[in-house]
Design a protein around this nucleic acid. Sequence first.
DNA 1: CTCTCGATGCGCT
DNA 2: GCGCATCGAGAGA
Length: 199
Amino acid sequence: MIDRQDRLGRAFYARPTLSVARDLLGQRLVRRLDGQLVEGRIVEVEAYIGREDAASHAHGGLTERNAAMFGPPGHAYVYFIYGMHHCFNIVTEREGYPAAVLVRALEPLTGIQAMRERREGRPDRELTNGPAKLCYALDIGRELDGADLVEGSELWVERGERVDEERIMSGTRINVRGDKRALSAPWRFWIRDHPYVSK
DNA sequence: CTCTCGATGCGCT
DNA sequence: GCGCATCGAGAGA
């Protein structure tokens, strides 16, 4: 029963990254943990597109760390940052072209108790309202770097409620470095007024 | 509520 | 060695 019919397929991810990023809003990220499903609705994302994007980890070319970004679409790119956190991305476009969508925030849907246990002492509002926080809540670590979200059984995305076009906001990405173009590109997308969008 | 700052490991130059 | 696609504690308002 792991593979439900509404799982997003390869074709969803093999499209222009900005389209994938917008369309991921409202979809459900599903994690299998101890035989239980833990799910959250995607409410905030950021796009990282091509080697020309000075804010992208792929800017300097292919390395061991960013290899998943150069791989086929629909796979995870998980990286370790600031010496203590993980962040989760979904690879987009065609193999060989480095692009991905960083998932920045979720709204907890099911398995909330399991998330609370992994995020002990935090109020519910802070379970998954940040890219590293959601990785703690869903136990996403480097062992999932490169994992296939289309064929795999640990982590995938299912179709969720459609988000009204009017509720989709965009703006510049958070905490990125780079050139003027990277700093001004409106490649962050979120659901307007959603309580789980990061701060 | 907002702002500042330290933690902490590793990939890359 | 440097610098990071972050988080949480603590201080102040």
